[in-house]
């Protein structure tokens, strides 16, 4: 059993603090589906570091995915070596709404 505390860095904002700056209109239906069973054999799990919204996290050796904070960049689809990411954009104009980018 381990309890990881955030190391005392120079006040880096956590990902949820960053995502909170954005405007979203989240769809009830996920626009990305992760076939997590394919992740078990994945050695590098590049999604964990590549996703700029930290939508992919590893918990107890398993990759858990959430789409709500997705920035819709498509990186996970490209870096996934096992074709585990069924990726699309949100429908109906939902998802992130950029204003100053």
């Amino acid at each position: 059993m381990s309890q990881a505390q955030e190391p005392p860095r120079r006040k880096l904002l956590r990902i949820d603090d960053l995502l909170q700056r954005n405007v979203y209109d989240v769809d009830q239906r996920p626009h990305i589906i992760l076939h997590a069973e394919k992740c078990e054999e994945c050695e590098y799990k590049p999604c964990l570091r590549a996703c700029p919204a930290e939508c992919y996290v590893e918990v107890g050796g398993r990759v858990i995915f959430s789409y709500e904070g997705c920035l819709e960049c498509g990186t996970c689809r490209v870096v996934c070596p096992h074709d585990a990411v069924e990726w699309d954009y949100p429908v109906s104009g939902r998802g992130v709404y950029y204003r100053f980018s």
Binding site: M1, S2, Q3, V59, G60, G61
Partner: peptide, 15 residues
């Protein structure tokens, strides 16, 4: 308090 537990789900629930 923001404590993060890393481990498997069962252990996490107990923690």
């Amino acid at each position: 308090k923001r404590q993060v537990f890393k481990g498997d789900a069962r252990e996490a629930a107990r923690w």
